[in-house]
Design a binder for these strands. Structure first.
Lengths: 147, 147
DNA sequence: GTTTAATATATCGTGCGCGATCATATCGCA
DNA sequence: TGCGATATGATCGCGCACGATATATTAAAC
């Protein structure tokens, strides 16, 4: 537990996971006012982003994309449905699946959200190159952790 | 919104924040079984790590260290108190402050937690150099976002 | 010295996020 | 055809995490 011990220690300053945890919170705090303006939370925004990419997908598909469980998504999707942004309906072919689709209001919201990424990018103060590298490192890290 | 548009787009694949969000979840999933074994959640583990570094600190000091609010910490600390790991007591000099101290059980737990960082480091599959660089980039990013 | 402002923590309501468990639907296979 | 295995979401309970607000204590202003 000495200062120059190269192995990971219990000292908080050495925790990469804490840096990620804290950076995640910092991002959330920047997003909050921007997303408040369009009436979404960050996880709701992620779900909408998935749907803006590809409409009419199953709950499971959204979960795979965002690495979330149905126990997280079901209530979230019901809230989005309550806001009139998405529709939920059982698949005719396979009644086990629930398909999520965008409403007209859901599609319209995309325009209002268009400016958000630029604001975030601006706040991050990163150049494209560093941001890309950081993203690649994190994605690779996530993949290794998932094993 | 074309593929080679260098500006940030609404496409999820371009969100650095999402990579951080997802990596954070991935870390939590690796931590879960390790921390279950010593009866802590990840945020509780962070608070204990702060106390193992420096005992007898105020709620506010823990919050500054972990970037958390009293509305998060107060219930968490009460749970740790309920587990018999910490004590909570009003400061004699300044009755507004609540000082958090380790119990004997809280100090003992440090030994049981000693192996955790090495397991996490192992699971991350990172060499020390890359891990350190990644950590520095994230800390710098958090600082910029906090402005 | 009383009013006023600032500080520190606690409380409340909302929304994730997960594991465990359940209900229903579908599939495999004899 | 029928029955166990599997797949898909939904539900429940718990613990963060935050903003808004309340309360109590201290410090400052006059």
């Amino acid at each position: 537990m000495t200062q120059d011990d190269p192995t990971p220690s219990l000292a908080l300053d050495h925790f990469l996971c804490f840096s990620i945890y804290a950076a995640n919170h910092a991002f959330n705090r920047v997003y909050k006012p921007l997303l408040d303006a369009i009436g979404l939370t960050y996880p709701q925004y992620l779900v909408m982003a998935v749907l803006w990419e590809k409409d009419d997908v199953t709950v499971g598909a959204i979960g795979e994309r965002l690495f979330l469980e149905s126990s997280t998504l079901t209530p979230l999707l019901k809230r989005l449905e309550g806001m009139g942004l998405v529709t939920r309906s059982r698949d005719r072919q396979d009644e086990r699946q629930v398909r999520i689709g965008l409403t007209e209001a859901g599609r319209t919201l995309r325009g209002k959200a268009a400016g958000v990424p630029a604001c975030i990018f601006e706040a991050s103060g990163l150049d494209v190159e560093t941001g890309t590298r950081l993203k690649q490192d994190l994605d690779a890290l996530r993949q290794r952790l998932a094993r």
